[in-house]
Design a protein around this nucleic acid. Structure first.
Lengths: 231, 231
DNA sequence: AGAAATTATTGATACAGATCAAGCATCCCG
DNA sequence: CGGGATGCTTGATCTGTATCAATAATTTCT
């Protein structure tokens, strides 16, 4: 693997504290790959050959049953996915595909298991990362089960507002992908944007203007136990 | 803590391999308590004082927002809950209450964090347990998002059939609790039982008879990536 | 620039499930 | 035993969202 990639991975919390020999061993059979949007990365029920680390872009975790399909979570940099399957050596529960152009590191699961058994700093970092993944999926499930699609969109816009620090901003993805991300159809997203007009949201193409932040916040009722991705 | 309890906890995978000194230290401030049904154990947003271990009975993990409430998962013996919050020392994302009479061990989170940092066997066991919890919640989310309530009930009955090894069995909980467990209202559960009659399910009070296992299985389409709690 | 493909919007309809309301069954206890 | 509480069933209605269909807007390609 290229040295600059190696350093980039070394700086991730998950790998930052481990012994250097072990890190080099872990990197030996690892590699980084670029993927275009909408490329399937893994299929549910496959054995966990590689631990995946999203370095840039974003990845959709989804699942299918009986001809139906549903999006389960979105992974953004810098974060891993299928860590749970990797450490337990059990088949993936979800499939994964890129949402946008993405750079992803692939680390052999076998090496992860071998090294985490002997490197306690690495084991501790895995505990943190797994706990973080667990909490993310719980928050996502709460967002989906407790809120209507209109409320989910309102909270999404508030998060974007906070992220950019601006009352006007552009959507970072196509509306159809945003719809999927928010767990609704694109038809419904269209109607939802209309539905937020009374709360001071103005939409022109993919440009958003929040005319009345107070109104929107009062409607959205953001909550750190759902919307704060950092804790 | 009583010696027999202590041995019972020691036999759990999570604590089986750790150093004995560390185990005794962990037990020093721990205790086991019996709770009647429907008792609140923890409230979301509280700091994670104790790691909880369900020794018998069952516990409902639920969450509320803006006056709405939803059940997120059910914890059955022998398994932990709020391990993720405990190890990261972050507030609970979910509330918990007993569904039935339950025996629960309470272990100070602070001690868990202190000991897992030095005991690598314990750290590894925590990784396994966290990965298991993660996979459980993913399966639960798939069950809820991909299936209708009728299909969820059908698969539940098949699991009970398998568990008892008998085509006739009694429901192990009240129908209203079963409804909550399956993520529906009790009115809907009533209708769902009616809806499964054409697939060979006969209901008398809380006694279930599966007249045609093939028909029911063909309808339910059970899938290990959703219904197998052990992997 | 023009044609073709993709994405976005809008309206009409369908469906799963929640909620509300009323009646029925079952259990518990004095 | 009788009466009250609790749980269960059934029907009617309402809501949120998906689906289907048609058109409009935008992007991509040649």
């Amino acid at each position: 693997m290229h040295e600059s990639y190696r350093q980039e991975i070394r700086d991730i919390d998950l790998f930052a504290e481990m012994d250097d020999k072990n890190f080099q061993a872990l990197m030996r059979a690892s590699y980084v790959q670029n993927f275009p949007p909408r490329i399937d990365l893994i299929q549910e029920n496959e054995p966990p050959d590689f631990l995946h680390v999203v370095l840039s872009g974003s990845v959709d975790l989804f699942s299918a049953w009986n001809g139906r399909e549903t999006s389960m979570a979105t992974v953004r940099p810098i974060s891993t996915f299928i860590l749970a399957a990797s450490v337990r050596n059990l088949p993936y529960l979800m499939s994964a595909r890129t949402l946008e152009k993405s750079r992803i590191a692939l680390i052999p699961s076998q090496d992860v298991r071998a090294i985490f058994a002997t490197d306690s700093a690495f084991a501790q970092a895995i505990v943190s990362e797994l706990a973080q993944c667990y909490r993310s999926i719980v928050k996502n499930a709460k967002d989906l089960k407790l809120r209507t699609s209109l409320e989910r969109l309102a909270n999404y816009l508030l998060r974007q507002q906070e992220r950019t620090g601006n009352l006007e901003f552009d959507l970072t993805m196509e509306k159809r992908r945003l719809a999927s991300f928010l767990g609704m159809t694109s038809e419904n997203l269209s109607r939802a944007f209309k539905g937020l007009e009374p709360y001071g949201v103005r939409v022109t193409g993919n440009h958003i203007e929040i005319v009345n932040l107070n109104d929107l916040t009062r409607y959205a009722k953001p909550n750190p136990l759902i919307d704060d991705y950092t804790t």
